[in-house]
Amino acid sequence: MTAIPQDAALVRITDLHKGYGAHIKVLRGLNIEMKPGERVVVIGPSGGGKSTLLRVVMGLEEIQQGSVTFAGKPYISAEGSKTRIDTEQRKKIGMVFQHYTLFPHLTVLQNLTLAPRKVHGVSRSAAEDRGRAILARFGLDAKADAYPSQLSGGQKQRVAIARALMLDPQLMLFDEVTSALDPELVAEVEAVILQLASQGMPMMMVTHDMWFARNVASRVIFCAGGVVVEDGPPEQVLGNPKEERTREFIDRVFHIKG
């Protein structure tokens, strides 16, 4: 990680408003300050803006109001009807999506080396060495020359995580990365994320898996109606929520989960 003073925020989201079209408001004045080293899990009802929040932080969305800073510097801001995104700042953030996003025409190793070579001008051999090393760490060394179609869903998501790590991100975003997986494949992906967590990788994730949230999070944010409803350590938000809306949600989720 880079040397960020421990008192500075890694991500500071201020008064974030985001909608689609004239009538649909997804985020309505959302404020979050994420410190370096934190692992933030965002939970909440569907349609509450969790995924949109991650997509905004990744710089994939226009916003209508508010700003995001990254590592103490301006990153995203709404200026009139335009959204200004600092693309250099954006390169410091990695993201893994719910749907498989490996490029099907490239092998696993080519998927990993594409961005380092094109974006950072790393030589092919250096990028491939790095790629093989990361694949080995995730137990995927045998799959380096396979095409995505030859992988299981769990392997695809692990490769997607490896691909994001190739760029040495200072923050990882995980948007429901196990939601599309068969149940027996979820654990292998969560294990990789836990491995990153144990190495101190700052991360922000959306998940419906409350057990995993409790395992990985250093902080849980309950988001509903486009604002932060409750924000605290996992024991509090998941175990003993202060807010009525959080409690209702948690009760419902754990009841369904059995």
Binding site: R55, M58, G59, L60, T87, R90, K91, I93, G94, M95, F97, T101, F103, L114, A115, K118, V119, H120, A160, R163, A164, L167
Partner: peptide
Amino acid sequence: LDAGIALGL
């Protein structure tokens, strides 16, 4: 394409 943006392309 989103993944491409996230990779900095």
